[in-house]
């Protein structure tokens, strides 16, 4: 299976999921902070993030990081209703302006479900940093 084919086609262990790229936009962080009712100023004010040791840029919200991985999964799986479960671990922060790449790889194929290793990588100072790692299970057919 090529990376561009959806999950309900033949999937095999080792297949790479089509990557999803995004940029951590500080304006989006403001919107999410309002939606979540998240008062933590490290997402909004670079002076606060610097004072707390995070550096000179605002810190992206964890749910946005997870959302990018889910978006990658949904695009590959063929619909939001096909993502059955996910497990994530936050390994590093994503900062304002950074480019991220969500990716994954098939680790097991069952009769009705596909298990994947998933991640979110950040390109930082010429080095790839893994911000999120985890696993996910997607259905091979829609449940809607």
């Amino acid at each position: 299976m090529s990376a561009a084919e959806p999950a309900d086609r033949v999937a095999a262990v080792g297949d790479e999921l089509p990557p999803f790229t995004a940029v951590a936009d500080p304006e989006h962080m403001k919107t999410i902070a309002a939606l979540l009712g998240d008062p933590n100023m490290i997402h909004l004010d670079p002076n606060v993030s610097a004072a707390l040791g995070f550096g000179e840029r605002v810190v992206n919200q964890g749910p946005i990081n997870l959302g990018w991985v889910h978006t990658m999964l949904v695009r590959w799986a063929g619909g939001a209703d096909r993502v059955r479960s996910s497990r994530f671990r936050f390994r590093d922060n994503v900062f304002g302006g950074e480019r991220v790449v969500a990716g994954g790889r098939v680790t097991a194929v069952g009769s009705g479900e596909i298990e994947c290793e998933v991640w979110l990588d950040v390109e930082r100072d010429g080095v790839v940093v893994r911000a999120v790692s985890g696993t996910a299970v997607v259905a091979r057919v829609g449940r809607a």
Partner: peptide
């Protein structure tokens, strides 16, 4: 996260 049904 576990989804028993799609959220609507």
């Amino acid at each position: 996260m576990d989804f028993a049904r799609p959220l609507r």
